[in-house]
C-alpha cells in the first residue's frame, strides 16, 4: 500500500526513457523482425551504450544544474591522444599516461567551470570555445610532438584488464565502469545531501546561493566531472584499440545530449534522474546499433532517432505535468 502504484511510477522523471526503450524495441521486433535473444546478448549496443553512458551521466548532472558542456566532443580524442603520446610515443609508464589524460580533463573542466561561474557568458558558448580550442591543441600538439595524427599505444596487461580488454572477445570492460559509475552517480544525486544542491542550483541559482550552497564550487566540480569523464572514455578507447586518432568524438556531443534529454532531464535544469539518463543511453544505443539486427535499411536510423527524441520529450513533458499536478486525494 505504501505509495507503490502505476500512477506514482508515471510521475517519475525516468518514465519517458523507459517507455521510449519499450517502444523502440517493440518497433524493431514488429517491423524489423529482430530476434530478441540476439539483440539482448549483443555486444555492439552494450559497448556503445557504455561509452556514451559514462559521458552522459555527468553531462546530465550538469544539465540538471542548468548548464551544458559540449567540449566533451574534443575531450574524448584529447584523452586518447594524451595517453597514447605519453605512454605510446614517449614510452612512459602507463600510469603517467592515464594521469596525464585525466589531468587534461580536470584542467579543461576547471577552465570551463571558472569561466561559467565568473562571467555571464552562457556555458554553451564557453564550452563551444573550449571544444574548438582543445581540438586545435590536440591536433597541433600531436603533429609537433609525434609528426602524425595517429599514435599507436601498447598498454601493459594490467592496464588492459582494468580499462580496455574485451570480455569473451566482444564486451568491453568499460561496461562495468559504466554500471559502477551509474550506481555512484545515483547515490550522489538521489541519496546524498549534495544531490539536493544540484537540483536547487538548476531550479534557482540565486535562491540556492542565498540558502548557503557554494554554487560556484559545485558548478566547477560538475564541469570537471564531465570533461574528465570524456577524457576517461577516450583513454579507455586508446587502450582497448591500441591506438589513438586526433579526429572523432564530435558525434558524442549530439548523442549525449539526445540520451540525456530522452532520459527525462529538463534542458533548462532543475529536473531529472540518473536512472533516466541510464535508460536514455541504452535507448539511444539500441536505436543506433540495433538497426543492424533488423530488416530495416540502416540509413533510416537517424530518422528513428529524431522521431524517438521528439516522442520522448513530449512524453517527458506530459509526465512532468502529471508530477506537478499530483496531489493525494483527501483521506476520508
Amino acid at each position: 500500500m505504501n505509495g507503490f502504484s502505476f500512477r506514482s511510477l508515471l510521475r517519475r522523471p525516468e518514465m519517458g526513457s523507459v517507455l521510449s526503450l519499450v517502444l523502440v524495441v517493440a518497433f524493431y521486433v514488429i517491423i524489423g523482425h529482430v530476434d530478441v535473444g540476439n539483440l539482448v546478448g549483443a555486444a555492439s549496443w552494450l559497448n556503445f551504450a557504455a561509452n556514451l553512458g559514462i559521458v552522459a551521466l555527468p553531462v546530465g548532472l550538469l544539465m540538471i544544474a542548468g548548464e551544458l558542456d559540449i567540449s566533451i566532443g574534443s575531450m574524448i580524442p584529447a584523452g586518447s591522444m594524451t595517453v597514447a603520446i605519453l605512454s605510446g610515443y614517449y614510452e612512459l609508464p602507463i600510469v603517467v599516461g592515464i594521469l596525464g589524460a585525466l589531468g587534461f580533463g580536470v584542467a579543461v573542466g576547471l577552465f570551463n567551470g571558472y569561466l561559467a561561474t565568473h562571467t555571464t557568458v552562457p556555458s554553451l558558448i564557453i564550452t563551444l570555445g573550449s571544444l574548438v580550442a582543445v581540438q586545435g591543441v590536440v591536433l597541433s600538439g600531436s603533429m609537433l610532438l609525434t609528426g602524425a595524427a595517429s599514435v599507436p599505444l601498447d598498454a601493459p596487461d594490467w592496464a588492459k584488464t582494468v580499462f580496455g580488454h574485451l570480455i569473451a572477445n566482444k564486451y568491453q570492460v568499460i561496461v562495468f565502469w559504466w554500471l559502477g559509475l551509474t550506481a555512484l552517480f545515483a547515490l550522489f544525486l538521489h541519496v546524498s545531501p549534495w544531490g539536493n544542491w544540484v537540483f536547487a542550483l538548476g531550479g534557482d541559482e540565486t535562491s540556492a546561493r542565498n540558502a548557503g550552497i557554494p554554487t560556484n564550487r559545485l558548478k566547477i566540480m560538475l564541469f570537471v566531472m564531465s570533461s574528465t569523464a570524456a577524457a576517461f572514455v577516450g583513454m579507455c578507447g586508446a587502450i582497448v584499440f591500441n591506438s589513438a586518432q586526433v579526429s572523432g568524438g564530435m558525434n558524442y556531443i549530439f548523442n549525449v545530449i539526445v540520451s540525456v534529454v530522452v532520459g527525462g532531464v529538463l534542458l533548462t535544469g532543475g529536473f531529472g534522474s540518473i536512472i533516466g539518463i541510464f535508460f536514455g543511453a541504452i535507448t539511444f544505443a539500441i536505436v543506433n546499433q540495433g538497426i543492424y539486427f533488423t530488416d530495416i535499411d540502416r540509413n533510416w536510423s537517424n530518422l528513428i532517432i529524431g522521431v524517438m527524441l521528439i516522442a520522448a520529450v513530449l512524453m517527458n513533458n506530459t509526465f512532468r505535468k502529471m508530477a506537478l499536478a499530483y496531489a493525494p486525494r483527501k483521506k476520508k
Binding site: F199, A200, G203, A208, F271
Partner: peptide, 12 residues
C-alpha cells in the same frame, strides 16, 4: 524551486 519536492526544497 518549482520542480523540487516540498521536503527537499524546505531543507535546501
Amino acid at each position: 524551486f518549482a520542480l523540487m519536492s516540498i521536503g527537499r526544497s524546505f531543507f535546501v
